[in-house]
């Protein structure tokens, strides 16, 4: 119940944030701009709308997760409101979990709004609904939750600017790690190959959550890919949040 209260507080705070509205407006404009792009194209019209829509959901979601996520804990410390919260019977782990759930809910609402916009546009163009896009949206949302957890983890021990840089690095490395491994396998020696392979298993491979290409072309995924990817994301979520809770528990807030 206490977690729900903190989550609701974090959600209300995020909803009041102007960044959220500007990013949402940007995403909807990006999705809407596909109407213009489609007019310039010969062939591939539906694909352009879907690619642009899924790209906007992912890109804007990452920006929201990073720039609102890094301020969730640090802002409470800066404003000293953390002392009021901690004076109540709330443990620090509940505080972190509540903040995470609050931003998770904010992201859910945003992703839902953008998805409705994308599906409506695809429907206008093709005259049919495109449910094949929903698995891509679901995994994009899991990726955003992971980045939110990473943002909270970094903001538990460093400044908001550094937290934003670290979280964006997690995104870039996470999206690149598969390609880095492929490069090492092609051009590297045995040591580099082993290192790249090891890192690709330890570091969250965010490319696993990007199935937009397969969704847009309605390509089949391997059996049980979605549940496995959800479990994979869930495992990293637990790791990130546990680390954030452990670091935040040791912080001197007195």
């Amino acid at each position: 119940m206490r977690i729900v209260a903190i989550a609701f507080m974090a959600f209300t705070e995020a909803v009041r944030d102007r960044i959220l509205y500007s990013l949402l407006a940007f995403a909807l404009a990006m999705i809407g701009s596909s109407i213009v792009l489609v007019r310039l194209s010969v062939g591939g019209e539906a694909k352009i709308v879907k690619d642009l829509g899924l790209g906007a959901i992912s890109l804007v979601g990452v920006l929201i997760a990073v720039f609102i996520g890094v301020g969730l804990v640090s802002r409470e410390i800066d404003r000293r409101t953390i002392y009021t919260i901690m004076a109540r019977p709330i443990c620090r782990a509940e505080f972190i979990l509540g903040k995470f759930c609050g931003l998770g809910l904010t992201l859910l609402v945003n992703v839902a709004v953008m998805t409705v916009g994308l599906l409506s546009l695809a429907w206008l163009l093709e005259g049919r609904w495109s449910p094949e896009l929903l698995p891509a949206v679901l995994l994009a949302y899991v990726e955003l939750l992971l980045l939110t957890a990473a943002a909270i983890l970094f903001s538990a021990f460093t400044t908001p600017t550094l937290s934003a840089i670290f979280t964006l690095s997690v995104f870039v490395i996470g999206r690149l790690i598969g390609d880095l491994r492929a490069f090492a396998e092609q051009f590297g020696g045995a040591g580099l190959r082993a290192l790249a392979t090891g890192l690709s298993y330890v570091f969250p491979n965010l490319a696993r959550f990007n199935i937009s290409e397969a969704s847009v072309h309605a390509l089949p995924l391997g059996t049980g890919y979605i549940p496995l990817a959800l479990l994979y994301g869930g495992a990293y979520l637990i790791l990130f949040l546990a680390a954030a809770m452990a670091i935040f528990a040791r912080q001197d807030l007195k």
Partner: peptide
């Protein structure tokens, strides 16, 4: 960073 289908669309235009 995974946005290659979008880049393909822009190059197509």
């Amino acid at each position: 960073l995974g946005f290659h289908p979008l880049a393909a669309d822009l190059y197509w235009l």
